[in-house]
Design a protein around this nucleic acid. Structure first.
Lengths: 214, 214, 214, 214
DNA sequence: GGATAATCGAGACGGTACGTCGCGTCTTCAT
DNA sequence: ATGAAGACGCGACGTACCGTCTCGATTATCC
């Protein structure tokens, strides 16, 4: 009921903003447009002007929420990822604790999956955005967390499982181990000095597991 | 026939370019200006307009040689690297075959050096350019060769030395091993999910040598 | 001296392209190219660059003879006019002294002819060049003489004839009379406020004559 | 009330342009700058780049309103003419119907004025622009109307007055008569074959009148 | 219910940089 | 020593986006 203003005005946090609320439709249209442009023409096609035009939205509506086109692209990629039609959709569940040696198998599967996803056009955009993002913005960190750390954490769990069932050494620094495993994929992706084949991924894992020394 | 064509056809440079040759001074000024701008403001400061202004050169003179600002930046970085005031200057010679265990030591030294160089502002520009370079242009390949493969080849020699003196296994695929070692450096540099410390580099090498498994 | 110029200069026909008498050919090619470009795209298409390309001639070769594209255009129009395929080709001879009243008839005929010629694309270029020519260059004057004064002189002769046979007043200032007659044609051509019809020319002459006649 | 759409649909300007209206200040600054440049260096000095710089305005702001520098020059000359500091400022009112013979006197005065105005630098720019204007653009026509037809219409009124008070013949085609009178001024201005003196104008009128008068 | 306020779309604003064209001058090679 | 070829510094062109700023209109909450 409207007639009890004292209660409403005294409410501690909800603090509804005055004025007209931002349009969810507009937001959705913007992110959809950005996602499409990223998919069609890559990072450089996702301009504010182009997004606004395709979303039938004013430019200030975009700037009200995001500081620049980069940020919109990040938001679009993260949102679409959550929505399911994904850059890096969840694989059918790793199940690390099935039986002996299954942790490493799962890790191998996940690594192939990561390579597949980030080789795709949208995946390339993701890595480029992360690489080019200079400042340690909140959004930058969130974006990195979403696409890089999330997979690292899956890997971390798998490695922990592999530790506990004796598949790998117990004295490992897991962060170092994770970088050792994931880095070659992105290295080849970004530097492009050699193709990122399925065979290469297997080889990397094998060599990493056995070690170079003898 | 106006003259004896056999003589003409025997000239050593059959299609020497006609007309006024391109000015070496202009080229030098352009690359110098580009290099300075890269060092001062990073990749985004190296615009054609800015380079032309600083080099006291017309824009068409730049476009006559390079197709875009990216290419000029590549040329500038490569040229300056050769000139000595380098993004990645040669270390005082590795000498891999001195004595036992020295190959791996040299590799470790080189890896630290690579990390140092590519952490610097100009080094970051180099990796960003490589990552963002879309097509497999000739210039792109040359640039990658210059900055990535050159160091890989040094590493390749060191690894071969380590193989021959028994420091590492002889059944290794050296390309895989090289990626395993160099990738984590660039991975941290480009993804920025964790700092690229000296300690980390040592750890990576150690773990890689020993292997994850036990 | 490498050769005996007296021999070369004494040869009757300049046929052989042995030495270097290319200059005449080049000149012809330049003027031809300029004329074609003028005819195809008007004054603004006749650029030095375009002329040089079409004539397969170096730009300095053009600048050696003419100071700018305007001058080349003038030369091309004058030359072609002399050559016969003319902007303002000679009509089959006026013959002002045939019989009584024929002087004015001839004047009328010539005026129609002038209007026809200067209405054509190349004629428009001629008037535009004259109008836009700022300085009183020698070439400018020559050009004006060729295209404007030549016709004025024809008209002057006709008017003098008309004077002597009593068709017009004897106390006229012929220069004023000539301007009175020719001006309306160019006025309509250049200002374009009304069409330049055959009827209009007759009307102008009639009205003008009402005062000139006696 | 805002919510009654019938009232809204009855609004007098149904398709008022949306978005931010164009800045009148910017427009004024642009036209002022163009006018100054025209006065200082003639037609060729009025470049888009120069105008934008002097007006402290972005180039796209100019292109949003005018298609090229020519059009800006036209607008500037017309606007300034209306503003008073004029290329062809209004003389103190002709008053054609005062007394006998005054219509022709007024015409003579106006013709001198026209010659004076179009001999001045800005006046030359005006005629050059009209002569060079290729297409029958709306702006071209408006420009011609403003500078040529306006004066013709003054002259038309004067001639009509001269007709009605018997100074000139009543069976004249006024348009032909007007061209006969104004054309010599512009003819000499544009062709430059002879100087445009005050004496010449009087002579032209006298000779022309010998026929017009009755 | 009326005022207030933040939103919406649209699009113009001052700018920066783009990549191109033509200018008039120069430099080099082959005749 | 001339001629073609073409690079040079320069200046202007017209376009694409940037991020900001009005506009009128819309949609909420608050008084």
């Amino acid at each position: 009921m409207k007639s009890s203003p004292d209660i409403k005005s005294r409410k501690p946090f909800p603090d509804r903003p005055r004025g007209r609320p931002r349009s969810v439709e507009a937001r959705r249209a913007i992110l959809k447009a950005a996602h499409e442009l990223l998919a069609e023409g890559g990072l450089s096609s996702a301009t504010i002007e182009g997004i606004a035009a395709r979303a039938a939205v004013g430019k200030p509506t975009i700037y009200r929420t995001w500081p620049n086109a980069h940020a919109v692209a990040m938001a679009a990629l993260m949102e679409s990822d959550e929505a399911g039609e994904s850059v890096a959709e969840k694989q059918p569940a790793p199940k690390p604790n099935e039986r002996s040696s299954s942790a490493l198998t799962a890790l191998r599967t996940q690594l192939h999956e990561v390579a597949r996803v980030f080789s795709a056009p949208l995946g390339r955009s993701v890595t480029l955005i992360i690489a080019a993002a200079e400042a340690d913005t909140e959004l930058s960190k969130a974006f990195r967390n979403h696409f890089i750390l999330a997979r690292r954490n899956e890997g971390r769990a798998l490695l922990a499982g592999a530790m506990s069932n004796g598949e790998i050494r117990r004295d490992l620094d897991i962060d170092v181990a994770l970088d050792l495993i994931y880095a070659p994929v992105f290295y080849r992706l970004l530097m492009g000095h050699a193709p990122l084949t399925s065979r290469f991924i297997d080889d990397v894992l094998n060599v990493a597991l056995q070690g170079l020394a003898r």
